[in-house]
């Protein structure tokens, strides 16, 4: 009995044995099967020792939630890029700030906005396809829908998606505006999202696409899985989680940058984030988010920046914060927000 125990102890003590049990490879398999041939009386010892090693676990195991995993990865990669740029020359440094500016997904309003143009979403040919489904959101609206293949789409305000039925064998959707996709895995039928100039191809993954026609950029931000993106000018990249591809059509270039999952895809969970955001942009986003119009009554200057984080908050609550920080008063009247100078008491 004591002898048995010490024989098992011999095995357990041997780190080569333990590592063979935990992660066998060709070499160690060969070694231990040969060893067993010459020590056939030790077969039971080996089995017992194996079971002891394999049955040992942490009583409680802790899993890093996906969101945190992605967030930390994205932060770590950003930090890495920042340091790399810093250690490069000055030009490199300048470029980084340019990229990080893009990563913050600041809305680039292009003058008088190119508004919706129904022609940008051309209807597929009528011969081969029986039915075209079209879903559209107005300002202040969001829409969650499930596609026939089980994929989930959350459509942000002022966006439109079209796809043809039957869908499952030809998974292709057209998008104008912004949407978050959680694509059902189906390696045989790749899932494609077309925007005006870009093509995004995936198998099963989740990602956000922002492609408003009045913005000069289209951003594809990957949360999980692998995504291939390309545009009409032949720029292409393969993206992994925590990366986003930003097609800048004004300068005809594609930038791959890290991003904050919360800042990019938080909208689908009702999260409104302002991070040193210029007031004019804050108003634009509130207009779209709540479907309201701002009216500035007495030439109050909308200068300055605002930082805040709102989770499914009311417009009034947000405006309380913004107006306090920026020194104006407001009044909400139906779908209009009247802004005027603060009255001196």
């Amino acid at each position: 009995m004591a002898e048995r125990a010490s024989k098992i102890l011999d095995l357990l003590e041997n780190e080569n044995f333990v590592q063979w049990v935990l992660s066998p490879n060709q070499e160690t398999n060969h070694y231990w099967s040969k060893w067993l041939l010459t020590h056939s009386e030790r077969k039971e010892d080996v089995e017992k020792a194996r079971q002891i090693v394999l049955s040992t676990h942490y009583k409680k195991s802790f899993t890093l939630p996906d969101e945190d995993y992605n967030q930390i990865l994205s932060d770590v990669v950003s930090h890495h890029r920042r340091r790399i740029k810093e250690s490069n020359d000055l030009i490199g440094r300048k470029l980084f700030y340019k990229i990080s500016g893009v990563a913050a997904a600041i809305v680039l309003m292009v003058g008088a906005a190119l508004w919706y143009n129904d022609n940008t979403l051309s209807t597929p040919s009528e011969h081969s396809i029986s039915e075209v489904i079209r879903k559209k959101t107005g300002s202040g609206q969001k829409l969650t829908l499930q596609l026939p293949d089980g994929s989930k789409v959350v459509l942000n305000a002022e966006s439109e998606i079209t796809y043809a039925i039957p869908f499952s064998s030809n998974r292709e959707v057209k998008l104008s505006g912004e949407a978050f996709f959680d694509v059902k895995k189906d390696p045989e039928h790749p899932f494609t999202v077309l925007t005006r100039y870009t093509t995004t191809k995936v198998v099963g993954t989740s990602f956000n696409i922002r492609s408003y026609t009045y913005e000069s950029e289209t951003a594809i931000s990957v949360l999980t899985g692998k995504v291939e993106v390309s545009d009409h000018n032949g720029h292409e990249a393969a993206l992994i989680p925590a990366q986003q591809g930003v097609f800048d059509f004004k300068h005809d270039q594609l930038l791959v940058t890290p991003f904050s999952a919360e800042a990019i895809a938080g909208w689908k969970d009702g999260l409104l984030l302002f991070n040193n955001t210029p007031l004019t942009e804050v108003m634009d986003r509130l207009e779209k988010w709540y479907g309201v119009q701002f009216e500035i009554t007495d030439g109050t200057l909308m200068e300055g920046k605002y930082t805040g984080r709102y989770n499914n908050a009311s417009l009034e609550k947000i405006l309380d914060g913004v107006s306090y920080a920026s020194g104006f008063d407001f009044k909400i009247k139906d779908k209009t927000v009247l802004v005027h100078k603060k009255q001196r008491k």
Partner: peptide, 26 residues
């Protein structure tokens, strides 16, 4: 570092042994 000893096979160890091992380890 609470350790659990989870039976992974009917071979090798007796059920009672898992219990004893787990108690001893902890």
């Amino acid at each position: 570092f609470m350790i659990a000893s989870i039976p992974i096979s009917t071979q090798g160890l007796e059920k009672s042994e898992y219990v004893v091992i787990e108690r001893k380890l902890n």
